[in-house]
């Protein structure tokens, strides 16, 4: 019995290690429900004591009532903070569940493809698999699906780094024109298969000051979206200019566009417009969230303008090189 009481007290004392508990929630002390609850307890006890002292020392009941009123207002404010803190913790948990659900679906598609392709090859005998060209086609598809999964997992890890405030950038002088050329080379086959033709107009050779790998990642996301949301193909223009002491990079397509009702949400994590799903089923809705986080952290800005069924222009700025 005494052991049980000691154990209970030990766990209670551990619970009082508020700094550790709040660090686990990844919220500040004034957003941590446990800490706020403790503050509220202290305020309640103080309120009772103060009311007792005031009531016994002063004869005017108005003063005691006023003190009670003020303390009640403080308690109400702290109570409100506690509710908000719980909401924050609950939302973070909901967001993680959504994340797991979307990413597992994103990984399931290529995993099913790999499973079926290998299953088909393994179901055939040596004679049927003798056609090296046909087998190689299957292996190439398996390889592509594997690359897709690596890319999804990398995006997932990047989102985690952003949420943990652990996105470390290593800025150097970067030629955005050069990075864009390399991205366009990488996307050559995808663009041509989608009948998309890229045009690059680099008006400025001035380098930007940014993390090269992350800047490339942002350009890849925006170029990829321009191809995916240009049903039937068309021309996509990329312009690089120097403007107001910053480097402006922008991409204009003549594709599906974004409905007005969804425009305020396109940079939200996991958001995918119903309109976008009509054109492109693949995607997790985290590319633009990652792009925005990288650009903001690099000291730049990101935005877009879009007209339904006419196309979109996405742009970002980065500080100029030193």
């Amino acid at each position: 019995m005494s052991n049980a009481i000691l154990l209970y007290m030990a766990s209670w004392a551990q619970g009082l290690n508020l700094k550790k508990t709040c660090a686990e929630y990844q919220v500040g002390l004034w957003q941590c429900p446990q800490f706020l609850f403790l503050v509220m307890g202290i305020v309640i006890i103080s309120a009772i004591l103060v009311t007792y002292v005031v009531a016994s020392r002063y004869e005017e009941p108005e003063i005691a009532s006023l003190v009670v009123l003020i303390l009640t207002a403080i308690l109400f404010a702290i109570g409100n903070l506690i509710v908000r803190a719980f909401e924050r913790v609950a939302l973070a948990s909901k967001s993680k569940s959504e994340f797991i659900s979307i990413m597992s679906h994103q990984l399931r598609s290529p995993l099913s493809a790999v499973k079926w392709q290998l299953n088909f090859l393994l179901s055939r005998d040596e004679r049927e698999n003798a056609d090296f060209g046909a087998v190689q086609k299957y292996l190439q598809t398996v390889y592509n699906q594997n690359e897709r999964m690596i890319s999804s997992v990398n995006d997932l890890l990047e989102v985690n780094r952003i949420e943990d405030n652990d996105l470390i950038l290593r800025p150097i002088n970067v030629s955005l024109a050069e990075v864009t050329r390399r991205v366009l080379e990488e996307y050559k086959n995808f663009a041509s298969a989608s009948n998309v033709e890229f045009e690059l107009r680099a008006e400025s050779d001035q380098p930007a000051f940014a993390d090269e790998e992350r800047a490339r990642h942002v350009i890849e996301h925006l170029a990829d979206n321009a191809i995916r949301y240009s049903p039937g193909g068309g021309r996509v223009l990329i312009e690089i200019k120097k403007t107001d002491g910053k480097i402006l990079w922008q991409i204009t397509d003549h594709g599906a566009g974004i409905p007005k009702r969804d425009q305020s949400r396109v940079f939200e994590k996991f958001f995918r417009s119903d309109h976008a799903l009509r054109y492109q089923t693949e995607g997790s809705g985290i590319g633009l969230f990652i792009a925005k986080s990288i650009i903001k952290k690099s000291g730049g800005e990101i935005g877009f303008s879009s007209s339904l069924e006419k196309g979109s222009t996405f742009w970002f700025t980065l500080p100029t090189g030193r």
């Binding site: 493809a113 079926w116 299953n119 699906q145």
Partner: peptide, 17 residues
Amino acid sequence: EDEESLQKAMGDMLESK
């Protein structure tokens, strides 16, 4: 099915049967 690799694997398997 919009995933062409799934389409191909299923199509080849169905035809082989």
